[in-house]
Design a protein around this nucleic acid. Structure first.
Length: 467
RNA sequence: GCGCCGGUAGCUCAAUUGGCAGAGCAUUUGACUCUUAAUCAACAGGUUCCGGGUUCAAGUCCCGGCCGGCGCACCA
């Protein structure tokens, strides 16, 4: 059977529910509309049939009487999941349900599979993630969470545009994977005969655009890291990276807290929410504490990047952390912070003054060259964003890359690769600039109140099926 | 990658100590002029994830594999 190639609908379920809220039980409006959507439930009763139809805006009942509905017998045999286009009068039934009294209708598409149990939906994770199209129809929570993600991305873009940032795109295929500490995916270009890496961060390209004179740029795009999967990690995820010339890291912290709190207000209408049954506040300003302060409080003694490495290593050893020979005091302090503090940081907070040893792209503090003007924001015990005053001294940048190269030689698979083109770009002059990286999936998790990153990714990475 | 838990009809789930494979919904057929997960009646629906093993007998116990969830590790 050939189904129509188009259907000119002129009304949506959601809008009808509000605009005809005044209809009293049994009242007929006299207004004829054309709606389209999917049959979710069907109740036949002899010469009557009631269907619940859903479109993108909500649900409305289709009310079919054999006496007035064309092809009534066929209507009564519709399957759950079939798409229909309906023309009829807006009425309210005697039992009070706003309905379209079907005059004519047409099947737009047939559903050969059902959409799970009409009460319980689809619970099986494998089926939900591998066939998200069915999950979206079966489970309202899946619809709202993925819609929230979309709203978070829209609100983020609009706020960046409103602050005079321009959206740019930089290469995903790269000869070297740099700009972050992570293992890359490798691919191959046949015509070039070259192996290429999928980007782990767009950072260095974006700063080159600032060198080129684009003073405020952002990219909202996918990055790829060849690491384990978890409820908080997907191998490909979406990151906002944003750079502002003439700002320092304090300016960027202010922008970040306003951006995140603003997105929450745009999407949810409030900054005060519950996340996984626990109160959570996006409200700015967020506390700003140094890594050394937080680590000192946690271990009960003063520690800093100047604490002897032996003492830091001992504190790590007490906590079951294996200290690698290549770790200096800076790396030890950062590890100590992560193991003692990170999980307990619930409401948003900025952790500042990261050791230069773990911050190869950040500018040194003027009052302490072993520290950098860097921050990370944490929320619900997880890292949410990372930013700093950008290192713009090509000579220092080369020594930082060389330190990374030594780590790589010592066996660190995530050490940053040296990027000569980037150093050359800095030699043309990067103005004082602050940068930000913000994990959009994690922000979407907070706003959608989801515990798993897979719930805010339409098609999360799964193991391919074999056999 | 390691550990724990799980996989039974299209979907959601039962199945006692190892003893005939079950229900609701969906599908099919019939009844029903105001239903709301409609209701009622009937039919049909199975490689119990896959492959071995133990046993008179395996959904259940053992071994291997596949996929998923959670934790660890890695990271954002």
């Amino acid at each position: 059977m050939t189904t129509p190639y188009s259907f000119a609908h002129n009304a949506f379920a959601g809008a009808l529910q509000t605009s005809y809220a005044h209809l009293v039980d049994g009242e007929e409006s006299g207004d004829v509309v054309k709606v389209a959507g999917r049959v979710m439930l069907l109740r036949t009763q002899g010469k009557l049939a009631f269907a619940t139809m859903r479109d993108s805006s909500g649900e409305i009942q289709l009310f079919a009487l054999a006496a007035v509905c064309a092809d009534f017998d066929e209507f009564a045999k519709l399957h759950l999941g079939d798409w229909v286009g309906v023309t009829g009068e807006v009425v309210r039934t005697k039992r009070g349900e706003l309905s379209i009294k079907v005059a004519t209708w047409v099947k737009l598409a047939t559903a050969l599979h059902n959409f799970g149990d009409k009460w319980a939906g689809i619970a099986d994770f494998d089926l939900r993630y591998r066939h998200r199209e069915a999950d979206l129809w079966a489970n309202e929570k899946s619809r709202t969470s993925l819609a929230r993600r979309s709203e978070v991305l829209r609100a983020t873009r609009e706020r960046c545009w409103a602050a005079n940032f321009i959206e740019v795109e930089t290469p995903i295929l790269n000869a070297i994977a740099t700009g972050a500490a992570a293992k890359p995916f490798t691919t191959h270009h046949h015509a070039l005969g070259s192996d290429l890496f999928l980007r782990i961060a767009p950072e260095l390209w974006l700063k080159r655009l600032v060198v080129g004179g684009f003073e405020r740029v952002f990219e909202l795009g996918r990055v790829f890291r060849n690491e384990g999967l978890s409820p908080r990690h997907n191998p490909e995820f979406t990151m906002l990276e944003l750079y502002a010339a003439y700002w320092n890291y304090e300016d960027m912290m202010s922008f970040t807290e306003e951006l995140v709190a603003g997105v929450a207000r745009d999407v949810l209408g409030t900054t005060e929410v519950t996340y996984q049954d626990r109160p959570f506040s996006f409200a700015a300003p967020w506390p700003r504490r140094t890594m050394a302060e937080l680590a000192s409080e946690a271990v009960g003694e003063d520690v800093s990047v100047h604490t002897p490495r032996e003492r830091l290593a001992a504190l790590l050893g007490e906590r079951g952390v294996e200290v690698h020979a290549s770790w200096g005091p800076g790396r030890c302090l950062a590890e100590l912070f992560e193991v003692t503090c990170e999980d307990s940081l619930w409401d948003p907070i900025f952790v500042t003054d990261f050791p230069v040893e773990v911050s190869p792209l950040a500018r040194r503090r003027q009052d302490d060259p072993e520290l950098t003007e860097r921050f990370e924001s944490y929320a619900v015990g997880r890292e949410l964003s990372n930013g700093f005053s950008e290192l713009n001294d090509p000579v220092d940048q080369r020594t930082r890359f060389e330190d990374q190269a030594r780590l790589a030689a010592a066996g660190d698979p995530e050490a940053m690769a040296i990027d000569e083109d980037y150093i050359k770009a800095l030699e043309w002059g990067l103005p004082p600039t602050a940068g930000l990286g913000l994990g959009m999936d994690r922000l979407a998790m907070l706003i959608a109140d989801e515990a798993s990153i897979r719930e805010v990714i339409a098609f999360p990475t799964l193991k391919p099926l074999r056999d």
